[in-house]
Design a protein around this nucleic acid. Structure first.
Lengths: 133, 133
DNA sequence: CAGCATCCTCAGTGATACTG
DNA sequence: CAGTATCACTGAGGATGCTG
């Protein structure tokens, strides 16, 4: 089992931190990419909602408390660009659009699980045991 | 092995999305907590830098390209509150302050690894194979 | 229904200067 | 050295109304 230090060494820190390119592209940047795709106020709720089952725009708008149509539209577009979400237009009248999680979207699961697991432990540590160093 | 759908079901989505409290606290919120702690422009570079070895404020300021003293100070404070980073003041003259990763900080490793691994695969998929659905 | 256009605001960030 | 204070700016996100 590698330690955090060992892994960080593989990141070639001293080079990475100051590099404009090179090692940075294969090391720090991927972390940033993943973070950028998941962060923001609505990405996770949308992904979670679509993981349960496919939904239409209006349904998402209704099921995700507080989101505006503008943000929902924008976020879905980003998720679609990243191939995490599929957009299917049905030629009904009026048209309906169904959004669903892609197969590729499932690859996010290990990431989300780690985030959730760490977040749970962290909540416990900080909120319920704030006194411990 | 659980599927993403199965896990999402355990999140009790329909309840979670609309809940102000209750299930939300143990499910969506931890993900947001973790994300909040890691996201932003400087948290990861700081953590990575400190994982290689402890550093003083000035050293961090020098080693992390582009960060301002104000942001460095603010980010270190947040990391310290979350017990990921330790702040040690030495009564030299003038005083020096050493920042280091805590034992608890190491618990972030699985999270960072998953983010990096997914980010690497994603980079490959989106940038080098943009044509594939 | 599924969005887009417009306007707005305010918290996060940067630049610069200053302090114990 | 290790920060803080002040000001200015930007952009994520919200409110509202409109369209194909």
């Amino acid at each position: 089992m590698e330690t955090l230090e060992q892994v960080m060494e593989t990141l070639n820190m001293e080079t990475v931190l100051k590099a404009e390119s090179g090692p940075c592209i294969t090391h720090l940047l991927p972390i940033r990419d993943a973070l950028d795709i998941l962060s923001g106020k609505w990405k996770i709720p949308i992904i979670v909602a679509l993981c349960v089952h496919k939904r239409r725009f209006k349904e998402l708008h209704r099921d995700i408390t507080g989101i505006t149509a503008k943000m929902l539209s924008k976020e879905l577009k980003e998720l679609e660009v990243n191939k995490l979400v599929n957009r299917a237009v049905h030629a009904t009248s009026p048209v309906t659009v169904e959004y669903s999680i892609t197969e590729y979207g499932h690859s996010l699961w290990p990431v989300i699980r780690e985030l959730r697991d760490w977040g749970l432990k962290h909540r416990d540590k900080i909120i319920y045991h704030p006194e411990e160093a």
